[in-house]
Design a protein around this nucleic acid. Structure first.
Length: 564
DNA sequence: GCAATAAGCGCG
DNA sequence: AAAGCGCGCTTATTGC
């Protein structure tokens, strides 16, 4: 039981306590379960071990938390950061036991499970939270870049709040529209485990074309064998290897694979499991990716195929504001490297078009392929061919990713702008490296070691950009979340769950793209807020360095209408 | 029998 | 003509 905002003090037994030493502003340390601002006015930053443990229940009670510090997320960032000196209290066994590791299960019953929820990780006491907070504070203050790290920690924590809120509110999903999409492509929903009609037809065509009446098109080895038996020199059954081959089995096989994917990943079973009530509630895993991007768990929230996005529909009287940061990663690179020419190429326009206008390459497609090659470490084809021209035009930017790659190849750690560091290569890495140095190491061992070295270099090359882009996106969503709440409620119909009734709120986030569900009357203001938040994110990361982060923003009824 | 792995494809 | 980064999920297969 919790006290709603505007109510009295902390609930009995909550264990909430005012923190006297927490730096600027009042802070509340929450060891078990928390409460609201004590004076009702000072913005309070809740400090708790794990947002995902506590926040779902607060939201279920209609309570929104404005700001927090997630000790578990912060712990992980600080422990891994090259900017933080080792040997602090953060690395004590006690701190590790309590604050290391993945987020724990929410403190709420799981409705659809017959079984007990797995026992949660040990719950830190109030005192343990306080001493962890103090240790983190010391680590930040004593670090090479306290301001940036502090920004990273609060942005990551705000992301955790947003993630829990998005799951709570859910993405509005029209089951009937989804069913129409499936029926149009697959045929009517089959009973039981039967193949949908359209897939069965295609399977029959494949069997007949390959003269293999008993072939199971879902068995990759069998399909490969039959393709070869029919004279097709393929190494795998992947689409890019098959398409364009001149054989009557190819077209139905590719069509089958496409439908099979739709059916198994986002078919009726998915719909029943993940959208029982007209809302899709994915579990986001904040910081779930090494680079700081979010991951997801269950439901494939980050892989919703374009095919079914028409089922994402605003409630009656509401709109979806869909925003997408254009060419985010190259722009982030321009900012990171303070590459003025590259920033200039993207100012007020499509960055790739700007690269063409600057006379660096001939076409937008080349500019894009070349930039992606620079970010990912491409070494072949058109991408590699234009790399020298990009390097000449943008020496700072290309130099930065090149340096990150070289550092990784040496086995060193690289870091994002705000101080998230890459993992060190594992023990197997160094073993393979040193084994290649043995006097009697064969050339095979040497080339394996070389391939591994380059692969790690590609990882660190991309890490600095992808990770800093993730930081930009966290700042974007954090600032937007604040703005949306400040806009207040309108008298819109619809069924947004408390505390978001009548209010614009985030419902989806995908690396460089987000969706807000808003009362229709507020859609324009939301679009404005989304842009303003992007500008703030740019300033938070890059200060006055003049790099733009333009967005495409659309106010639509259906997610499928946005973008192209 | 079950768990781990591989292939393939969806997203950025 | 997909080459290079990061993921999650499903199915079939392989390993114990």
């Amino acid at each position: 039981m919790l006290v709603a905002p505007g109510g009295g003090g902390p609930p009995a037994g909550s264990g909430a306590r005012r923190d006297a030493s927490g730096g600027a502003g009042a802070e509340v340390v929450v060891g078990a379960v928390g409460s609201r601002a004590f004076d009702g006015e000072t913005p309070v930053r809740w400090v708790w071990d794990d947002t995902w443990r506590w926040y779902p229940r607060l939201l279920a009670d209609g309570v929104r938390v404005e700001r927090c510090l997630d000790l578990r997320l912060a712990h992980r960032v600080l422990r891994g950061s090259a900017a933080v000196a080792g040997g602090s209290a953060l690395s004590s066994a006690a701190a590790s036991a309590l604050f290391d590791g993945p987020p724990v299960a929410p403190d709420e019953p799981v409705a659809d499970s017959l079984f007990e929820v797995a026992p949660s990780a040990p719950q830190p006491s109030l005192d343990e939270c306080e001493s962890e907070l103090a240790a983190q504070d010391d680590a930040v203050v004593g670090s090479a870049q306290p301001a940036r790290l502090r920004l990273l920690l609060v942005a990551e924590s705000a992301g955790a709040l947003a993630a829990a809120e998005m799951r709570h509110a859910g993405m509005p999903w029209d089951r009937a529209v989804h069913d129409e999409v499936l029926t149009a492509q697959l045929g009517p929903r089959p009973a039981g485990d039967a193949r949908p009609a359209r897939m069965a037809e295609l399977a029959a065509q494949v069997r007949s074309a390959l003269d293999a009446p008993r072939l199971n098109p879902d068995s990759l080895p069998d399909v490969l064998r039959e393709l070869r038996r029919n004279g097709l020199a393929v190494r795998s059954t992947s689409r890019w290897e098959l398409q364009g081959l001149d054989h009557p089995a190819v077209e139905p096989l590719l069509a089958y694979k496409k439908l099979s994917r739709l059916h198994s990943a986002n078919g009726w079973a998915w719909l029943d499991r993940w959208v029982p009530d007209g809302r899709f509630r994915p579990e986001y895993v904040v910081g779930g990716v090494v680079t700081g991007r979010w991951g997801s768990s269950g439901g494939g929230a980050l892989q919703i195929p374009k095919q079914v996005r028409s089922a994402v529909r605003a409630d009656e009287g509401w709109r979806l504001v869909v925003a997408d940061a254009a060419q985010l990663e190259p722009r982030v690179l321009a900012g990171l490297a303070r590459d003025e020419r590259m920033a200039e190429a993207g100012r007020g326009r499509d960055l790739y078009a700007g690269i063409v206008d600057a006379g660096v390459v001939e076409t937008r497609e080349l500019a894009k392929v070349g930039m992606l090659g620079a970010l990912y470490g491409g070494t072949t084809g058109a991408s590699a061919a234009v790399l020298p021209r990009l390097a000449r035009a943008f020496p700072s930017a290309l130099g930065l990713v090149e340096a990150a790659a070289r550092a990784g190849e040496r086995g060193e750690v690289v870091s994002t702008l705000l101080g998230r560091s890459s993992p060190r290569p594992g023990a197997a890495w160094s073993e393979l490296q040193s084994s290649a140095l043995d006097v009697d190491a064969g050339s095979a061992a040497e080339s394996r070691a070389r391939a591994q070295t380059r692969a790690w270099g590609r990882f660190t090359r991309n890490f600095v950009v992808q990770g800093t882009a993730a930081e930009w996106a966290l700042c974007w969503i954090a600032d937007l979340r604040r703005r949306l709440w400040a806009m207040g409620a309108s008298a819109a119909p619809g069924s947004a769950a408390a505390p978001f009734a009548g209010r614009p709120h985030l419902v989806y986030f995908l690396h460089d793209e987000l969706v807000v569900h808003t009362p229709a009357a507020m859609a324009d203001a939301v679009a404005e807020a989304v842009r303003a938040a992007a500008a703030v994110a740019g300033r938070l990361l890059f200060g006055e360095f003049p790099v733009d982060f333009p967005l495409t923003v659309a106010s639509v009824e259906s997610y499928a209408e946005a973008k192209g």
